[in-house]
Design a protein around this nucleic acid. Structure first.
Lengths: 250, 250
DNA sequence: CGCTTAGTTGAGTTCGTTCAACGACTGTGG
DNA sequence: CCACAGTCGTTGAACGAACTCAACTAAGCG
């Protein structure tokens, strides 16, 4: 289903992978690079708004985001949606499904996205032959866990204004490290996405974002927001930001 | 600090580990068992209410719950607390810290707890020598991620009654698989714990639990709750329960 | 041109909070 | 033995944050 959207098969060799240029990401050893380049099966190009993985599916593939923005979400039967996290270059997509079988969340593209495709079964080979990469994958899973911990704290215990400030600051911080922004510092989201991430209604999200705008912390544009004052957002959120240090990718 | 509470050093050999008797947990191969038993450094016995790990600490240890109940939580500076998840026998404690350095949440015992102690540095050895165990650890991390996804959906999108029903059903389901219950089916928690997990005030939590009681789904006892109707709780929550299948432990 | 999607704003309602008081029980020290 | 403080659970009343409903702009697209 997702793969039917694969309209191109340009295949950037891992040696020239753009992710290796990002200083925030930890580069491979020669050995690892050699293995990963054989591990990579192809690329998947997906347009904005399309679904990359669906809850309930058993995907034969595991992906790494090469470029673009996406998000993971779950829904209740009556349609209420909760966005769990956003996906950016270097993030693994579909790890849960690869390890445990069925996907329990869906993934949708926010912008045009390019994914690097791996075959799920070969993950065992990776664990057998490359303990350092296996450790990296666990690192990535543990990092995701941390982020979810932080989101839970936010949704459970911060009020609407703090929550919104935290979310925007969080996304901005991640994007900044990945060198995704130009001077405009623009995050491509609708207010509906924000609402579904914060666990608020759109109406109240709109009013909350207005408050942040009126404090000069951000500016809402068509389909996205421009960050004006990252430190101000951190302060409103009562959040210290992500820790420093490089992160691995595969 | 936590280790100063180690008042006993009984050391159950891994060969006779009680967790191996639990049918829901996947047993080791002879080879793995041999390695794990050398990996184990000792045991830590902790009394109810004491802190096992503190946010901000760099623990030299990694633990597995052998018996008892505990929980993970984070707090904001002003003291607001969010409980992230509950820990039961077979769960890894402190994996995030072991892999990424600093702990970003705290862990506290709800009942007397016995932990199996491993040394953090030896985790790399495990990855090098036992890919199957390394994979299991990733499995466990991915499982935790799933649970957090589900909690996020719950806190973000379910109302108080649904949320409470989901939480109780979730804890009950996990405990049942681990054979923790006698006929009383008693979960040892205060309403404050429930409130801090649901992201609600104690007062409203109390009123919500009363509603569940009046529907005959549970009964509140001193410092805990007795499950009367697990299916009824699932129904109120609009939740299908945890999937079936064994899970690994280390 | 109508249709759809995204964002905005106001009014009234509901869900959950805060404040406050009280009962039951436990443990402690005099 | 009683007095006292501390924790846990319970309940009522008033308040407020966030929700729903509804109406309305503005932009984009066939």
């Amino acid at each position: 289903m997702a793969l039917s959207r694969q309209n191109q098969s340009f295949r950037i060799p891992c040696q020239q992978c753009p992710l290796r240029e990002i200083t925030h990401l930890r580069d491979f050893t020669a050995d690892e690079l050699e293995f990963v380049s054989r591990f990579k099966k192809g690329e998947l190009v997906v347009e904005a708004g399309s679904t990359i993985l669906v809850e309930g599916a058993h995907s034969a593939h595991l992906f790494t985001m090469l470029s673009g923005w996406a998000f993971r979400y779950k829904t209740l039967e009556d349609g209420r949606r909760q966005i769990l996290n956003y996906l950016m270059p270097g993030d693994l997509v579909g790890l849960q499904g690869s390890i445990m079988g069925e996907m329990q969340h869906s993934v949708e593209a926010l912008s045009p996205v390019i994914l690097c495709v791996f075959e799920r079964e070969r993950l065992l080979t990776l664990y057998n032959l490359h303990p350092s990469l296996a450790f990296d994958i666990t690192w990535i899973a543990a990092q995701e866990e941390r982020i979810l911990d932080e989101h839970l704290l936010s949704i459970g215990r911060r009020n609407a204004l703090e929550r919104a400030a935290y979310l925007i600051a969080f996304i901005f911080e991640r994007g900044r490290r990945l060198e995704l922004f130009d001077e405009r510092r623009f995050i491509p989201l609708t207010q509906q996405h924000i609402a579904d991430t914060l666990g608020l209604s759109i109406v109240h999200t709109n009013k909350t974002l207005k408050k942040l705008s009126s404090k000069g912390l951000l500016r809402w544009q068509e389909r996205g927001c421009e960050i004006l004052d990252p430190e101000g957002l951190l302060e409103v959120a009562g959040w210290t930001g992500l820790g420093e240090g490089k992160r691995p990718f595969v």
